[in-house]
């Protein structure tokens, strides 16, 4: 025990030494650039003023901001013109009522060839999150495969699973669970 503590101590000193060396080097570089340091500041001010003077009416979203917005958007339920497809517990095969819904979706997609459709797979909140994430994926894929068999081009379809992370009904009874085991259609 004593030995291993010493080892850590030695390591800590070593790390401190390395960091210290690194710092002093950096500082040297900084002091060299001391005179120029004001320039970026001035540039910043200019950049800040520029948008006020000539910015377009709509704010420009950087790629990072757009990603972050998409990250938040996945937590939101989007309204759909189609009914959800429902599943039995721990199942991903399509019931007759599910097939009927899919046939309506397929008919719409074939009439509107330019449209893209996202199929979301969801689960009820019973069972492990990882397993449900995979199950939701299989549910979405099961729906996608059926739509393809009905003549919808694969290129018009994509899938995503939210497992049990986004229940439609927050209840904890069979009625709520039945609503939450679903595929949800989002036209894009």
């Amino acid at each position: 025990m004593c030995c291993s503590s010493w080892k850590y101590t030695a390591l800590a000193f070593l790390v401190v030494a390395v960091v210290a060396t690194g710092c002093s080097k950096k500082q040297t570089v900084k002091s060299d650039a001391g005179a120029g340091a004001a320039a970026p500041a001035a540039g910043e001010t200019a950049a800040q003023q520029a948008p006020a003077a000539q910015a377009p009416a709509q704010p420009v979203m950087t790629a990072k901001q757009a990603e972050a917005a998409r990250g938040v958007a996945v937590t939101e339920e989007k309204a759909s013109m189609f009914a959800d497809v429902r599943f039995d517990f721990d199942r991903s095969d399509l019931r007759d009522d599910a097939k009927k819904t899919c046939q309506e979706v397929a008919a719409y997609m074939k009439k509107n060839p330019g449209k893209k459709l996202l199929v979301e797979g969801h689960c009820d909140d019973r069972g492990t999150a990882e397993y449900n994430m995979a199950l939701g994926d299989r549910r979405a894929t099961s729906v996608k495969n059926y739509l393809v068999s009905l003549g919808v081009p694969t290129s018009a379809l994509s899938t995503v699973s939210f497992g049990k992370e986004r229940p439609l009904d927050p209840g904890h009874n069979e009625e709520a669970w039945a609503k939450n085991r679903r595929a949800h259609f989002v036209l894009q």
Partner: peptide
């Protein structure tokens, strides 16, 4: 703290 789903 990204207000998305962060899991497992």
């Amino acid at each position: 703290g990204n207000r998305s789903f962060n899991l497992f």
